[in-house]
Computed example of a mutant assay.
Amino acid sequence: MEQAGKSMRGEMDRISSLPDCLIHLTLSFLTAQEAVQTCVLSKRWKNLWTTSPFLNFDLRKFLCDDKPDDSE
């Protein structure tokens, strides 16, 4: 069984051992989509993005270029 904080090769996982506040700071530099994608990094990171006080949403990702034609 894998020990907490160690990779399969026995090396220490130093990023996952950082305090949540530093990981949240790191997530604040990512887009919201990238922050959510970090959930696959480890079991500890699975829901960590949900407690991040800052998520960088790119409004352009939510805007639709197809505008309905109201001229009819």
Rank of each mutant, 00 (worst) to 15 (best):
C64F: 04
F62W: 14
L41H: 02
D70R: 14
C21E: 13
K67A: 12
N47Y: 13
T51C: 14
E11N: 13
V40Y: 09
V36Y: 14
S7Y: 13
W45A: 06
P68I: 03
N56S: 11
S42M: 05
S52Q: 06
L18F: 04
T26M: 14
L30D: 01
S28E: 03
V36Q: 03
K46F: 14
R60P: 00
W49M: 05
F62Y: 15
N47D: 15
M8T: 04
N56Y: 10
C64Y: 04
Q37H: 11
R60N: 15
V36W: 03
A4S: 08
S17Y: 06
L48N: 01
S16E: 10
S7L: 15
D66H: 13
S42G: 01
V40C: 12
S17P: 01
A4N: 08
S17V: 07
D58C: 09
F57K: 11
E11G: 09
D65P: 12
K61G: 00
D58K: 10
R9E: 10
W49V: 01
E11D: 11
L59N: 12
L18P: 03
N56V: 01
Q33C: 06
S52K: 00
D66R: 14
E72P: 14
T51F: 14
I15M: 10
C64R: 15
C21G: 05
G5L: 02
D69W: 02
L41N: 02
F54Q: 10
T38C: 07
W45N: 09
V36F: 12
R44K: 15
F62D: 03
L30R: 00
H24M: 05
P19G: 04
L27W: 00
I15D: 07
S28P: 01
F57M: 07
M1E: 08
D69H: 10
I15G: 04
K46D: 11
